[in-house]
């Protein structure tokens, strides 16, 4: 079973994995309240257990700068929800500032058992397949080696182009927490976090898919 994004994030949050604050909205008033707390720009998304590739179905609106942009996105998502999946939720979150984008995944493999993967995230994941792996449980030094095995890491670490530099400790902490969660919860079959934004002073999960058994 694929968890809708907001449930996946709830699970991560409970395990102290840092995530971008996410809230379900049921009205434009909810959206306005969120904007007041989170500040613009905002992101609105459809959170559905059926459509985990939400960008492909037009279920993601990024960089909403003001109230009218939020209202237009909200109307679109209401329509989309009626068309695709009536039980889907509409969620709002603050737009994460630009940072190095990583991918973190966990998979239960028949022979190898629980495996964590780390890669260059965002849209480049499938293009470059710059990914490293470790079996879980793993030590902090293993997570550190995973970073060092990425071909793109030396450049990302220093701050590639306009991006801020990356503090590896925060990313390693995050991986450690994800590892802990997947080891504790045997019903988690797969996790897929992309992007995980990394900055000098923090790292956080912006989008997550979790597959559970049963």
């Amino acid at each position: 079973m694929i968890l809708p994004e907001h449930e996946a994030k709830e699970l991560l949050e409970k395990a102290q994995v840092p995530i971008v604050p996410t809230r379900i909205i049921d009205s434009l008033q909810d959206a306005a309240d969120a904007a007041e707390q989170m500040g613009y720009p905002l992101v609105l998304k459809l959170s559905s257990s059926r459509y985990s590739h939400k960008t492909e179905v037009g279920g993601v609106f990024l960089n909403l700068e003001d109230q009218s942009a939020v209202a237009r996105a909200y109307d679109e998502l209401i329509r989309l929800r009626q068309k695709l999946h009536g039980e889907a939720a509409i969620i709002v979150e603050p737009m994460a500032p630009p940072g190095a984008e990583f991918y973190i995944g966990v998979q239960r493999h028949d022979g190898f058992g629980l495996v964590i993967s780390l890669g260059l995230g965002g849209v480049f994941l499938e293009l470059f397949k710059d990914v490293s792996f470790r079996l879980l449980p793993a030590r902090r030094s293993d997570f550190c080696e995973m970073l060092n095995e990425l071909k793109t890491w030396p450049k990302l670490r220093k701050g590639f182009r306009n991006l801020p530099p990356v503090g590896d400790d925060h990313l390693i902490d995050l991986m450690d927490k994800v590892a802990g969660l997947s080891l504790a919860r045997e019903d988690i079959v797969e996790m897929d976090m992309n992007p995980v934004m990394a900055y000098a002073d923090r790292a956080l999960v912006v989008d997550a898919r979790i597959v559970t058994s049963g």
Binding site: V106, F112, S117, E126, S132, E190, M191, D192
Partner: peptide
């Protein structure tokens, strides 16, 4: 290639040899 079909990215990214390599190093 690992032939397992998966709902997420990991499956398609993981060649079996990648796992062996990582496992050897670990």
């Amino acid at each position: 290639e690992v032939s397992r079909a998966t709902a997420t990215h990991t499956g398609s990214l993981t060649g079996e040899y990648d796992l062996y390599r990582s496992m050897f190093r670990q």
